[in-house]
Amino acid sequence: MALSAVHRRRNRSILMPESQIAPAVLLRSVAITFGPKVGGYTAVQNIDLSVSPGEFIAIVGPTGCGKSTLLNASAGLLKPSDGKVEIFGVPLHGLNSRAGYLFQQDALMPWKTALQNVAVALEPKGVLRKEAEAMARDWLRRVGLAAFVDRYPHMLSGGQRKRVALAQMLIRDPEILLMDEPFGPLDAQTRQIMGNLLLELWAANRKAVLFVTHDLEEAIALADRVVVMSAGPAAGIIGEFPVPLPRPRDIAEVRLEPAFHHIHKKIWASLRTEVQKAYAQGEGATQ
């Protein structure tokens, strides 16, 4: 870790003038259309969003509103059909190498153990195998899986697999974290535990976070700012709400505070009509 700290400091000094002004992720009038440009399905339109370095943003919206699409555009997995994506002030071409991505589905390589899955993330950086494995061991300890390093993904529970995926993402020390309903498939208690773990790791080393979820309570409990999207097609951002709750937070306890309820009420008022709209269109909308 000492090595990467030095690395980061040096990076910062080079990028100091730029990173102080440039947002980590900037979406400027982004539109994404699937299929032909005219007559295709427009998922999102007119998206303007800026994420500062170290800021935790949650995106909520009804099912099928294109939340994941926005994330994929920020990751470079999807090229917007219109508008611009800038990463730390630099237009994004190809994959976003400064971002880590936590998928909703299982994305671990099933043929590698937990340790191998985490260590392999360092291979593109040219870290030696021995060193990578030592660091991977350390990360698995941090996410609470010290006793499970040699297990294959199918031997782990859903929550444990998410922990491995989290370690795999964080070990590369990316400057931006993109998360697509990462705790969606988990049960309620595991979600809380994972949320607290995420906040703890994030507090130790603050990155820009874009966290997509359909769970408004989870969004408020985690984020500095909650972005609400309208129902698709051609979804847009209909509101941004700051969450001035003090940190460090405990996911379970923060929900009991009056301020939490106040914010929840305010955001839900704007979200409700969109959810009803999406519901009226039929639940079969594309995810």
Binding site: L77, G100, Y101, P124, K125
Partner: peptide
């Protein structure tokens, strides 16, 4: 998803071949 994840880990074509395509084909 496994492929997208591996690409987000910045693997190049050779590494993708070794860590993703090859084991999948062997299975």
């Amino acid at each position: 998803v496994v492929l997208a994840n591996a690409r987000m880990l910045c693997m190049n074509e050779r590494q993708l071949l070794r860590h993703v395509y090859w084991p999948a084909a062997l299975t």
